[in-house]
Structure formats: structure tokens, C-alpha cells
Amino acid sequence: MSEPLVQVRDLTVHFPVGGRRDHRVVRAVDGVSFTVARGETLGLVGESGCGKSTTGLALLRLVEPTSGQVHFDGTDVRALRRRELRAWRRRAAMIFQDPYASLDPRSTVGDAVGEALDIHGLHQGRVARRARIGDLLERVGLHPDVAERFPHEFSGGQRQRVGVARALACEPDFIVADEPIAALDVSIQAQVMNLLAELQADLGLTFLFIAHDLAAVQHVSDRIAVMYLGRIVELADRDRLYRDPQHPYTRALLSAIPVPDPTRERARERILLSGDVPSPTDVPSGCRFRTRCPVVVEACGRLDPALQERGDGHEAACLRYGEVGTEVARSSHVDAS
């Protein structure tokens, strides 16, 4: 297998909480490692505040990582200087959640898409620029004539198409899509997901798809990483993660997602987690899921489990990895009901 396009090792992003005397930090991302192969979609799921968006931003250095390594196609991204970084950003683009907030209301859709072309000097003259913008808009299913219009004239789904066209402007290899469908209506979400899948097939794009909706993530991803409180707790192939989840948090998350089928919904046993996610300024000792874990043991308070792999590409960060899928999980169902 060829080298992965993106390699992330031990990435951390810590934000200071407040005053100069206050040494507390928000450990938004706290030691995250993964790779993304060329042409692959890696899904990153987790609940609000788990650090999934910050991970995506830190990869592109839209926030500066505190420590760790990010390698992109052999380039050490963290070592890039200002101008090098700008040149590199041609290859890695971002799609944001809120198409209302991410487009400037005073600039036309054509200029929003064209800005990236201008910055990177990717066109020769106005005619070529306009033609290229038209192509990009057409690529995402909009009429080239809409380039003259302003964002408020578009629906949420159309604006997100503009966001996608803008991301494609520099012909990137890699796109970080941060909750690209969360703000859209159900019938429109599918339009955008299909568009991304089509672009990936045609252009060979590599995606990091960040979302809280595991069903959507599973639909678009090859592999899925589950985050909890700044860490990846499980990473596996999309089907394996669903069929054989190993981390108790993944199991709880899967069991909480409602499926539009009354028969299944009635039959299923939910693993209800007690309490709330701890604050990222005050992360529990040992395993950070232990305060809510239905299968916690004494050792969990002392040992901080790292992601381990069992030779099948399925990684989980749990002291009880291997046990959890079987009898331990059963007992957790009994406890929870």
C-alpha cells in the first residue's frame, strides 16, 4: 500500500482558559493520531465539545496545534513558514458547517469562489477567471449565471454547494468537511452527501468528514474514528465499527442513535449513559470515559489507555479491549435497563 496522504501523530491543541495567573487549559484535542489514505474518506464523529472540529482546523493549521505532527504527502505541515503554508493550502481545503456564516453577504457568489483563484494566481485574466468560476459552479450543480448573485438569494443547500465550489477552486487533494450537512433539511442533506460522493469518485479527492450524525458519517466514510473528550477512543472500518464496536462509548453512541424503523426501535436496548461529559479543563485521571462507563473497573482510574490495534486495523482505547464486545457488554445491558 502506498503511503497515506495525511499522517497525524499525537496532535494536541490546548487553549488557555483566561487570565495570566490562570494556568488551566482547555484540552480540546489531547493526543490524537490517525492516517488518511489517498482517495479515502475518514469519518470523525463525536458529540459537541469532543474536539472533532478543532482537530480538523488544526490539521490545516487554521488553529495552531500545541504539539504533535501533521504530515501531508511527505510535507511536515507544522514546519511550513508563512508563504510555504499559503502555497500548501492550495492542496487542502475546508468546507464549513454553516453556509450562512461562511459566505460574505456583501460579495457575490462568483467572487466567493473566485477569491481562492485570485490568492493563488490560478487564472489568466478576467475572461478565464469567469469561465473557471462558471465551471466550478456547474460542477456542484448550480447554473453558471448565479455567479452574479449574492448569498442571501440562495437556500441553505445551494449555499452549501457554493461552499463546496469554493473548496474545489484550487483543485485540492484533500478536503476537511466540518459538519457540512448539519444545518440543512433532511431532503437537502442527501443532495449534498451525493454531491460529495460524486466529486470524490470523479476527482479522486480525500476527505476528512467531521459530523455528529453517525448514520451520515457511516454513509460517506470508509473508516470511522470516534472521539470523546479530546481523544480518539475507537477507529475502525465503517462496517466493523457498526457490527463489532469495542469501546463502551462507541457502543453507547450506536445504541442511542434512533433508526427509522418502529420494530427495531421497540426491540432495542439502549445503553443510557449517566451524567454529562466532564469538562475538558478538568479531564478525569486514567481513562477519560471512566466517569460514565458502564463497565468501569478499578484500574481505569490509574491507567490511561492508548489506542491499541489487534492486527486487523481495528483500534480501541480501552483497558478491557477484547472483553468488551462479549460478556462485558452483555452485563452492561443488564445494568443499564
Binding site: Q189, Q218, L254
Partner: peptide
């Protein structure tokens, strides 16, 4: 148009 958890991937929404 709904993605369903555990659905086959080859089926386009």
C-alpha cells in the same frame, strides 16, 4: 433520502 445506520453503502441516497 435518509442515511440509515447500518445500511449498505453502495446504495446512493
Amino acid at each position: 433520502s435518509l442515511p440509515v445506520l447500518g445500511a449498505r453503502r453502495d446504495v446512493e441516497l
